[in-house]
Amino acid sequence: MPDDPSNPLIRARGLTKRFGEFTAVDSIDFDVAVGESFGFLGPNGAGKTSTMRMIGCTSPITGGTLEVMGMNPAVHGPQIRARLGVVPQQDTLDSELTVRENLAIYGRYFGLSRAEVGRRADELLEFAQLTERANDQVEPLSGGMKRRLTIARSLINEPTLLLLDEPTTGLDPQARHLLWDRLYRLKQRGVTLVLTTHYMDEAEQLCDRLVVMDKAKIVAEGSPRELIERYSTREVTELRFAPGIVETLDGRLDGIAQRVEHLPDRILLYADDGEAAAVAVNQRGLKPETVLVRRSSLEDVFLRLTGRSLIE
């Protein structure tokens, strides 16, 4: 079964989710292979959470087909969930229990013995760097700690497949890096990761392959590098002009780059050689206030595909 592409861990065809009249997920197709880490990248409201909940067997599908570990969620929900770890977008920790009890009782829901649950809880507290807080209530924990506890909790049943819905949204950079490190370790242990994010750096860090979602649909699919190669140039030159100047440019940037993108606060020049583009701007006598040359990112891919920024 491992690595055999004919046996994906998740297989979705025409997968659709409607809430009444509203279509939150509109006939999407994707496969996730065993051991892969797969991402859904998209802005708020794209349908990422709806998709994750269908995979997690807590939201019935309204159209198409979905198979998780070769099983149908509508029929084998409990069997599938037994092998899943779920980190929901909003923490759902049990506020009436302590940190350690949260882990222990969760293991019991999966039918693990008390002894086993105790052993794993200690291990996971260590993994999440929460050993000192084991007997504290959950409420006073920081956002990063709660998130780590939620991830630890999702691992109590040693899942084959881990679903992470915006694992680091709202965390400070340090907390994010700690979480990325933990997720990277899991990936190395062979856990299949499926995550959603609207952070391009997160997608680039964690995903072997991803789909870009926008308005309930998948608009592109590939590895972060492939997507950048396909939809963007190697480099980007960002220009910021003093107020009022942009309106007077009127075609004077034509030909400098393969593509020019006007954003409200800056102009992006897509060129394989960003330095050269910056020099050309100068030679044409244009005087931007700042010039920044950087590598292309998934943000640029998204902009190209949808005409909008990922984070407004």
Partner: peptide, 14 residues
């Protein structure tokens, strides 16, 4: 308020 049940439904319980 506690979302206890939401988290429980992600396990094999129904």
């Amino acid at each position: 308020y506690n979302k206890t049940f939401t988290s429980i439904l992600a396990t094999p319980l129904s």
